[in-house]
């Protein structure tokens, strides 16, 4: 089976053709560099994405803290991961880099805070 992909490793955006047989990549063409080939090999079998979103904060200056997975997770797991994250809540203060959840859905990825949220004080009007 042949699949067409647009490479997003760099701005050139090569149009790649990947040949896949029973879950194995047979060939990659259209790429101009090695990064393109690596991207295609992963993307054709199991696309991986970093997931950025927010987690509820209790008692913070902001209602949410922004978070991301510390490494890419399988794209197919994103809906499930969002379901799990919706159920989370973290008590303020939150530190940047703080681990909110470990081994998200068994992927080995941690969910980490990408900003600090201090404890209540004056509720922020502008956030920024």
């Amino acid at each position: 089976m042949k699949r067409r992909l647009t490479c997003i490793s760099c701005p050139v955006g090569c149009e790649l053709t990947v040949e896949v047989e029973s879950g194995q990549v047979i060939s990659v063409s259209g790429n101009r560099c090695g990064r393109g080939e690596a991207y295609a090999r992963q993307e054709a079998v199991e696309p991986m994405r970093v997931l950025p979103t927010s987690v509820k904060v209790i008692g913070g200056e902001l209602p949410l803290v922004s978070v991301r997975t510390d490494r890419p997770i399988p794209r197919r797991l994103i809906p499930q991961a969002m379901g799990f994250i919706r159920g989370l809540a973290v008590e303020a203060p939150v530190e940047i880099g703080q681990v909110i959840a470990r081994d998200l859905l068994g992927t080995g990825a941690s969910l980490v805070a990408t900003r600090a949220v201090s404890r209540c004080g004056r509720p922020s009007l502008q956030g920024t």
């Binding site: 950025p52 922004s66 991301r68």
Partner: peptide
Amino acid sequence: EQCIHPGFGLHRYREELTGPE
């Protein structure tokens, strides 16, 4: 501060950061 997605910092810090980071 509001750009919570990754895609920043590859040139300056050689790693992919979110906006707040």
